[in-house]
Design a protein around this nucleic acid. Structure first.
Lengths: 323, 323
DNA sequence: GTGAAAGCGCTAACAT
DNA sequence: ATGTTAGCGCTTTCAC
């Protein structure tokens, strides 16, 4: 019943006599003994804690992304620490503390909004521990990425409009600093070009993901007086804002203009009309990010591959055949 | 330059000669030395890690609540570990591990949905470490609570309708198992009774917070053929669903029916018409919960007081004078 | 198969 | 003002 023996039992080592193991286990159960995580970490140099750092907590998808990440971490016996590069201050020093004090074995950066200085910071972290970025790829960096297949999603969105016979297709993009936006635009372009069409700059407006910007973008198209019967908005909020603007101008959706969004947020179903959109799973992105991170933590020398998650077109009533 | 001296410098102890301190600091900076958190925890019995456990990651307010909590934790030098009683399994054993392995010094439970067995679990945790619940109060328990003032919020919502001259007021409640719903209903009743009115069971439907249930509740009212010119929905999603149902039945908002929601979700402004609602700050709830928790952790013997956060009526266009 | 001894990196108590 | 000693609770040799 010495200390090392108890240690062996707790860690399920085989080299303990059955009778001893039972005796020890009994005492453990009786006193509900749990080994101190701090002491274990000290000797094992492993905390089983991972970190998730986000910079935009208004992002509606974040909750589900976190849920997925947390679930996956938990399933694999890790805990998840949370950080934000939030509103207030520059938190980078705080995270370096996390890293350098060896509290965290790996970090996911969920930076849908690229931040000034983010790459430098992430790179410096990356020197110490494995890092994964979700929803963004830093140019020229060898940091593994988890992302949705935005190119294919954009392609599907535009293809859906083309399939309904639309030829005059407008697009409201996200901020073009975002990989998600350029990818979705590129995918849309692929679909257009396959149909012998091109992106018309007059039918292109850059939004900022907000309802408001979708609303304004639709008005811009109307003011420009370029005809369009199909509209692809890079997210659902802008799509819904645009539909509202179209309604205000007495245009019917989908009879006069067909609209496709992106995301499949909960509100998409309840929009008037219910929104046709490209679904992506934030929960799935969370689990995928953690799978990738944990794999990297456990097999440091393996070459890592990005994870690209499929997107799926969800047909509802905001799209219909050309009049 | 012995080990304890370095320790003294790092912890900013006064009893170090200026010259020594500088020499030590220089080396620390040069090698970017950071003390091991595990070793410190082992001897100090303090990890500076707190936990937040949520059970509903679909809840749109969760992201901001987490952001607030994280920011406050960080400001006070703590890290925040995340947990979920999520979709998959029963995670309670996992959290007990967190607690008993002394990885976490305190826990916030964000259980807007009461869970079977939650009270037992939380109580058992509470025996070991400080605990705070957010958005829910367990009956007969002395666990401190952070919550919005839902009673006053409900009162303000109904008062707004009364002020516009409405006398026939319907209400779509949240699930009555929720404290938030009973509180909002009670607040509404207070306002009605102050105006010499009562809650009419015919004008009361219990929803489940979803758009869908708001939509259906409004239809129920219309089918019952009880007249109403004012409607208070216990959250914005149900309010928006109800407005849609009213539109479908060719009733105008606010000309025929005035509608007040609750929450002030981002979509409220962009609804048609923009939604009058009672605002609550999820971010503020997160910071408040962590302030309370940290205070409790640091002053274990102090009697703790609940924190009740103010709510605020935001007037938009879904409410107007009685025709 | 089991226990004795050493050490992970730090802080606290004591001695100088 | 600084160094020496001890010990936090574990895991890992290494004897036996």
């Amino acid at each position: 019943m010495s200390v090392p023996t108890v240690s062996r039992v707790i860690n399920g080592r085989p080299d303990v006599a059955l009778e001893t193991r039972q005796r020890v286990q009994e005492v453990i159960d009786r006193f509900n003994f749990q080994p101190s995580a701090a002491a274990r970490s000290l000797v094992s140099h492993s905390t089983r804690i991972l970190g998730l750092i986000a910079n935009d907590f208004e992002e509606p998808s974040l909750g589900l992304m976190i849920a997925g990440a947390q679930a996956e971490a938990h399933r694999q016996g890790y805990f998840l620490i949370l950080g934000s590069n939030g509103r207030d201050e520059d938190n980078a020093p705080g995270y370096m503390r996390l890293v350098q004090q060896r509290q965290v074995e790996g970090l996911v950066f969920f930076y849908p909004i690229p931040e000034p200085g983010a790459l430098e910071f992430i790179d410096s972290v990356h020197k110490d521990i494995p890092v994964v970025t979700a929803a963004y790829r830093f140019p020229d960096s060898r940091i593994p990425v988890v992302d949705h297949d935005n190119v294919d999603g954009g392609r599907q969105a535009v293809q859906c409009l083309l399939d309904y016979g639309h030829r005059d297709i407008a697009m409201i993009t996200g901020p073009l600093a975002w990989k998600a936006a350029t990818d979705r635009m590129y995918g849309g372009r692929l679909a257009l070009e396959a149909a012998g069409l091109r992106i018309d700059p007059e039918r292109l407006v850059e939004g900022d993901w907000s309802y408001q910007s979708g609303y304004e973008a639709a008005h811009t198209f109307l003011e420009r007086k370029v005809p369009f019967t199909g509209l692809f908005a890079h997210n659902d909020r802008m799509a819904i804002g645009a539909i509202q603007a179209l309604h205000d101008s007495n245009l019917r959706v989908p009879q006069d203009v067909s609209v496709v969004g992106f995301d499949d947020i909960p509100g998409a179903v309840y929009n008037v009309p219910p929104l046709t959109t490209v679904r992506q799973s934030s929960y799935g992105m969370g689990t995928a990010a953690l799978q990738l991170l944990i794999h990297t933590v456990q097999h440091t020398e393996d070459p890592v591959e990005d994870i690209i998650l499929k997107t799926e077109l969800v047909m509802r009533q905001s799209c219909g055949p050309r009049a």
